[in-house]
Design a protein around this nucleic acid. Structure first.
Lengths: 347, 347
DNA sequence: TTGAGAGGTGTTCTCGGTAACATGTGCTTC
DNA sequence: GAAGCACATGTTACCGAGAACACCTCTCAA
């Protein structure tokens, strides 16, 4: 069906090997032959079969990026950074959206091994990913974690400064006078959730406040905003409501804000909100949410770089961990007067 | 390096073929043998090589989705819908971000052929993609267009109702009294730009207004918002400024709004803004932009469905075109009083 | 008793490309 | 004039699976 070397060879009156040599600009093909072969290639529209090549070369040129949610702007940018860097290095990128589902993640990783990806970038579902990642390792597929580490698994990692970032965000709230500050977190098996909780507790401790367990809620963070909304509704039922909330990420924050408003309350008037991860479009359209912005593109770029180094040998290299600091962007939702220009205008 | 059938066969004391039979649950393997083979597979951690399989079966199980920008929420959702549907049908999805660059698109399509993808979903860069898509066709790679058609190319297509959607958006503006309405479009080679321009002109015509060429500007729409911003700045230099702007898509709209504000003007007070495509996060956080929302997930899902039908034979099927209507969502940016509750509160 | 068919397993060849090796020119060089 | 090398091309084998076919054994019906 598809054109092969053999058909090109026949048309050009040479052997398959010679066609291969022309295609790969290998040594020692006479100009006359080369020309005839090239003409035949053009005439038949021959495109080399990458699979067959991969069979012998043991390199597919494919990297896989596994993220829990492709519609989350944070991961979107990780993806973009990774894709760009990979392409420049001559690699393709296959995305896998694990939907934060362990079984789906397992399936993807198994597929990845089966399809001989040259390497994997993964934002793991959580600590439970450890076993699955060890299967990768057993099959000699190099991988690099992004955004999240996995307890008990030593490997290359690119992540943000969750502890520090959370501490900064929460300190921002305490500096505004808040003391009853809630946290909406996610599954304990996710390293960023743990780290951000630590930052949250550190910041409270800094001002002499003991973290109140009733003010700590976990959300199931899925692609829609419902997880954050549900968690927020729970907080709203407390007899003594928090005056501020620190939300573990952007998606949950959006849900939380919606829940607050649906509860007839105002942000930041009744409850101030701060969160991790910026949302570019929203930020420009109508800057509202105070966030710890992370350089997501950079996460992807660096992860690919580390991965490529693993792929191209240098096995001796030890485990490398890159930690990227975030940027505190203060906007209306935390209750300061920064950037209120627009909201005043909108009326 | 990686475990193969042969090693499993050796360990189990059978032939490679028998291992293959066990793996594929093919007929006639004695329970005893099956068990020994399965034990060997488990012990060695054998995972079948998908490439080798693809060589003989002539099916890779890979679909490619080519979009101009993976960080654009619209395409993100197309991608998500496509990925989900494909996965359920047992296909993987490779994403290619063409960055609206013809050469990059050509390269990707060539890669796709080379890597024997079973099919392609593509939001083409523009009409110039025609030649590149014909190469796909010549190589028997089925494909379906999403979002954009290509002039002079007959093929399956899933798109929004750009003419009607634009007409609705612009009519919304005229119904509010606007008459000097500008349009920020993009490259003429993009079908949606042409269609939306027609809808724009139709809507003006409906109220007896002749489209003013000076009010029509093209933006180079790239992943950042600069294209829209530049176009807007150009409109702001006109002696007689437009009172409203219809922007061809969400990314450009974000840039345009930024430019308006940077010019010291207000939206919608000085200039009303409407655009195609919603941005989910922004919409929840602080509803502002009046848009024609398109069911992007659905675009991806349907495109994959059409594609799978092509792949699994039924070649006789004629060209199919699916047109999905959008939803007008009126918010603050167009100057109505809808949804002003939040902005009033925010003060 | 024979043969037909089901059960069970191995051998060979192929998928499309290329590494490795083989072969065959012609020209230089001592 | 034989060795030696650069150039030019072909042959063979292999990458890891699986299709096709061959070849056993055993059972059961005629």
């Amino acid at each position: 069906m598809r054109v092969t070397v053999h058909e090109v060879a026949k048309l050009a009156g040479v052997s398959a090997m010679t066609v291969s040599r022309v295609v790969n600009r290998a040594a020692y093909v006479s100009p006359a032959t080369r020309q005839r072969v090239e003409a035949a290639i053009a005439e038949l529209g021959y495109v080399p079969n990458g699979l067959a090549r991969a069979m012998t070369s043991r390199k597919t040129g494919a990297l896989s990026v596994v993220v829990p949610d492709v519609t989350n702007p944070f991961f979107t940018h990780v993806l973009h950074g990774a894709e760009k860097t990979a392409r420049q290095a001559g690699y393709r990128v296959t995305i896998c959206s694990s939907e934060a589902d362990e079984e789906l993640e397992r399936q993807y990783l198994s597929d990845i091994i089966s399809n001989q990806a040259d390497g994997v970038i993964i934002a793991p579902v959580g600590d439970s990913s450890r076993a699955r990642l060890q299967v990768l390792r057993r099959n000699n597929v190099p991988f690099v974690l992004v955004d999240r580490s996995v307890a008990g698994l030593e490997c290359d990692l690119v992540q943000g400064d969750s502890v520090g970032g959370a501490r900064t965000l929460v300190s921002h709230l305490t500096s505004l006078g808040h003391r009853r500050i809630a946290m909406i977190s996610e599954d304990e098996g996710v390293s960023t959730a743990r780290d951000r909780q630590r930052g949250y507790e550190d910041a409270l401790h800094d001002v002499g406040v003991q973290a109140d367990p009733k003010l700590f809620v976990r959300a199931t963070v899925t692609e829609d905003f419902e997880g954050g909304a549900r968690a927020m509704r729970q907080l709203l039922t407390l007899k003594e409501r928090p005056t501020a909330v620190f939300v573990v990420n952007n998606m949950a924050a959006v849900g939380a804000i919606r829940a607050i408003r649906e509860g007839g309350l105002e942000v930041p008037g009744d409850i101030a909100v701060v969160a991790f991860d910026d949302v570019a479009h929203a930020a420009v359209l109508s800057p509202f949410l105070t966030v710890m912005a992370q350089p997501a593109d950079m996460f992807g770029m660096l992860a690919v770089q580390l991965l490529l180094e693993r792929i191209t040998g240098r096995d001796e290299a030890r485990r490398r961990i890159v930690v990227l600091p975030g940027d505190l962007i203060v906007r209306a939702s935390s209750g300061t007067r920064v950037n209120t220009k627009e909201s005043r205008r909108r009326r």
